[in-house]
């Protein structure tokens, strides 16, 4: 008997739902405008009711007959596909050129998108955070490099936290010619002025730079003893001249290209600092701070794909200039 009642209520509700939709199709005003007194009426008020909310406390409240084939609930499946390896994801017209075809001093480049995973780097509440911006620029830069005959090795290709130690390991085992680490600044002392700067390895006495290096070195994966050993390399770095030259070329392109879009941009120049990724890598290595999230206007620009593409292009030109000079 109860089941009969439920079915009756359901039929009535279903009928009203259909009517409501049919009215919409016909372009009639919503039902609430011409409410039916009937719905308040009669039979279900007097019927001793029921119903299933009580069975909520039990198990099977979704009443669907077996014939409907709903009995087996599949596990929730989220699409997990990620963008494939970029080299294979390129359309045919974008076939990478073989590196050997070019007489360049640089054949293989390591790109290191700063931060990742639970280490977001610099961030602001509503806009993109550093880890997202660096990965985006890295992917754009990678496309440019590959299109122009360079080979690219990436230290991270998705939103994952890779310890600095592993980044260095990836770089050092890849037999690459140069290493470019991409970061975005956020300096509380620089909410008005904003600029670009490029680092290569070296000791520094500047307390601001020490602080910056400490921030970027946050998730290193090195023990204190390892770090001490690494530190000796800061002073005896055989790559220093090459790294400095790479930093200078990259910095010059970054500044001149980006100033064209953003006249307020300052040239903070080439600097030395003991960033761990720079210490632990074996090839000429630089770390570029390609923008400032602490400046509101620039943070908004960094949020734009167009501006990030320009940064990628500037970095590409810097690398290309450097590789030409070497021949």
């Amino acid at each position: 008997m109860r089941v009969g009642n439920i079915d009756r209520v359901k039929r009535q509700l279903l009928h009203e739902a259909v009517s409501d939709n049919v009215d919409t199709i016909r372009g009639l005003p919503p039902r609430r405008m011409r409410r039916l007194e009937r719905t308040k009426g009669a039979w279900f008020r007097t019927t001793p009711l029921l119903l299933l909310p009580l069975t909520l406390l039990g198990a099977s409240y979704i009443v669907v007959s077996e014939s409907r084939g709903l009995a087996v609930a599949r596990p929730v499946q989220k699409p997990t596909a990620r963008p494939r390896n970029l080299a294979t994801a390129l359309p045919d017209s974008f076939e990478p050129v073989k590196a050997a075809a070019f007489p360049l001093a640089v054949k293989r480049v390591v790109l290191d998108a700063g931060h990742g995973g639970k280490d977001a780097g610099a961030s602001s509440a509503s806009l993109l955070s550093e880890k997202e911006i660096t990965l985006d620029i890295e992917r754009r830069l990678r496309l440019l490099l590959e299109h122009n005959g360079f080979e690219v090795v990436a230290t991270r290709t998705d939103d994952r936290l890779i310890p600095l130690r592993d980044r260095a390991r990836i770089a050092n085992s890849s037999d690459s010619d140069i290493f470019i680490s991409i970061h975005v600044n956020s300096l509380r002392s620089h909410t008005i002025s904003h600029g670009v700067e490029t680092y290569y390895l070296g000791p520094t006495k500047d307390p601001v730079l020490t602080q910056l290096a400490a921030e970027e070195n946050g998730t290193s994966g090195y023990s204190i003893a390892d770090l001490r050993k690494l530190l000796e390399r800061v002073y005896a770095d055989v790559r220093r001249d090459e790294s400095r030259r790479l930093a200078a070329t990259v910095q010059q392109q970054l500044y001149s290209d980006l100033r064209a879009v953003d006249p307020g941009l300052e040239n903070w120049g080439v600097k030395r600092a003991p960033f761990i990724v720079l210490v632990a890598t074996d090839m000429p290595a630089v770390l570029a701070e390609v923008g400032c999230l602490s400046n509101e206007r620039e943070a908004a620009m960094l949020n734009e794909p167009h501006y990030r593409q320009q940064i990628a292009q500037a970095l590409f030109r810097g690398i290309f200039e450097y590789s030409k000079k070497g021949t």
Partner: peptide
């Protein structure tokens, strides 16, 4: 057929009254 979300929930649960 377009319905309001809470209505669909109620219908699925047979929680139609009170």
């Amino acid at each position: 057929m377009i319905v309001s979300e809470p209505f669909a929930v109620a219908y699925g649960l047979n929680a139609l009254l009170h």
